[in-house]
Structure formats: C-alpha cells, structure tokens
Design a protein around this nucleic acid. Sequence first.
DNA 1: ACGATAACAGTAATCTTTACTGAATTATGG
DNA 2: CCATAATTCAGTAAAGATTACTGTTATCGT
Lengths: 137, 137
Amino acid sequence: MAQAQTRMTRQRAVILEELRKTKSHPTADELYSIVRERLPHISLGTVYRNLDFLADSGEIRRLEAAGSTKRFDGDISWHQHVRCVHCGRIGDVMQPLAAPPVDGIQVCGFSAIVGARIEFDGVCEACASRREAGQQN
Amino acid sequence: MAQAQTRMTRQRAVILEELRKTKSHPTADELYSIVRERLPHISLGTVYRNLDFLADSGEIRRLEAAGSTKRFDGDISWHQHVRCVHCGRIGDVMQPLAAPPVDGIQVCGFSAIVGARIEFDGVCEACASRREAGQQN
DNA sequence: ACGATAACAGTAATCTTTACTGAATTATGG
DNA sequence: CCATAATTCAGTAAAGATTACTGTTATCGT
C-alpha cells in the first residue's frame, strides 16, 4: 500500500519526453508551451509540479544557474553550462572539465561545502548578431 | 551638456555605504530594510534602481548566483561564493582560486565565452543546526 | 541662487513560482 | 474486469520579486 507511489501519468511522461528531446534548457514556461502542443489542456502548475518531482527523483537536472528563471535539463550526465549574459539562454560545454576541488575550502558561517561547479558566461549567437546589427543591448 | 550625468544622491550614497558595510550579501529587499532605518521614506523601487545603477557602473557586484532572488556584494575584489542550498544565503570563499580557464572552450550556439567562475554549494550553520534539531528541511 | 533634468516616492503592473480546491486518473486487490 | 483509495490533475488564486510609470523633488553646473 504505502510503497513507492510513483505514477507515470501521461502528463508526466510527455513532460519528461519533451525535455529529453530538446537540446535547449527550457524554463518551466517554455516547456509549458512545448508540451501544450501535445496536451492542450495541461496547466502550468502541472508542469511546475512535475519538473520538481522529476528533479527530486533524479530523472532530470534542475539547473543551479544564475538568472531570474529556473531552467531544466533532460540530460543528467555530467557536463558544464554556459549562460548567455544577455538573454539567459544556456548551452552545454562538452569538454570534460574536472569538478573543482571542494576539500580544504572553509567559509566562515558555513558548516559544509557539498559541491561545486564551474559556470561560464558567454554571448549566444542570437544575441551576438542582434548586437552586430546595430541594436545595442 | 550631455556629459556623464551622474548624481550622487543621498539615497544612492546610503545604499552604497550600507552595502559595503555589511558582510552578508543582501537581496534588494533585505537592503531595503537596512537602508530604511536611515532613510525611512526611501522606496523599494529606488533601491532596485540604484543597485542596478551601481552594478552597471562597477561600484558593486551583482551576484550571478543561482537561486530565485538576486543578491549584491559591496566587495568587488575577486573572490568566490558559496551558496547555502537550503536558504540561499551566500558566503565568501577567501582562498584564492584560479579563475577557470576560458580558452579552448567552444559551445555550439555561442559565439564567445567571456568569463567563468566557480560556484560552491554548501550548508550554512543556521540551516545545519536547524536540521540537527530534528526539523527536517 | 537658478534652471534643466536626473533621480525620487509611491503605486501599479508584470513575471515567476507556489499553494489551494474539487475532479479525474491511476495502480492494485478482489 | 470492476471497485477502491488516494495521488495527480486542471484551473485558479495568491505570494514573492522585479520592473515600469507618473508627478514631484533635489542635485549640480553655471
């Protein structure tokens, strides 16, 4: 009865499938738009709830990236990310880079350091060409 | 007359001074509370506007950190940050760590990589003791 | 001190995310 | 295969963070 109650509902399956299919790292809202093409009646709350659920169960990655909106990644293999400083878009860095060492790091007010990652700042091609075209910013 | 029109208003001066004084890395809202003790009539919008202004002019650092709310740092010297994975609090890593190399990094869809930083995940003492006390999460 | 105008206070609007509610769907035992 | 229980759903509302707008105030070069 009270065992692992994990229902693979249609909504959850579609969300996971579309997230894995896309190469971008969509926000909940962007994924909502994508999923709605297949499930027109899905609600934004459901997308948020399932992204949280899938991230907690380790099926997707919740990107701990800067920027105002959370983004998600269907590829849970170890890789780094670049974030466009203008639009927030995220790209994958495929070069394997060693995880930064955590040993020996001590910070006043913190009792443990549990992980570390490198975050790259970049300019995506869309923003670069938009700026070349004359429009500043 | 269209020269660099930058007025050092009382509000801006107080915001900058208080941000430099504090060791924490406050959100706009937290700084608003602090500044209001000296300028009771200041508005939150003014705090946001000036934080943006000061960050753009390089006087403070806008922390490119994960988490839902933006944070700011009055110390613009080069150092890394740890973020508490539970409460979002930020601490300074004083050990000098080399900036991650940017050369040779190429990412599909990105035309330039302009910088990189290490972000550490940690547990702050407040959250650690709160969890020890039995309250989970 | 004066005048142009950047910056202000206050408020409203926007955007992102979370919480709540009754209804529908799902896994499972009979 | 059908009934049962409860998780999950859709829809909506609310909360939190940030930005935009408007008329007023205060700064700074002259």
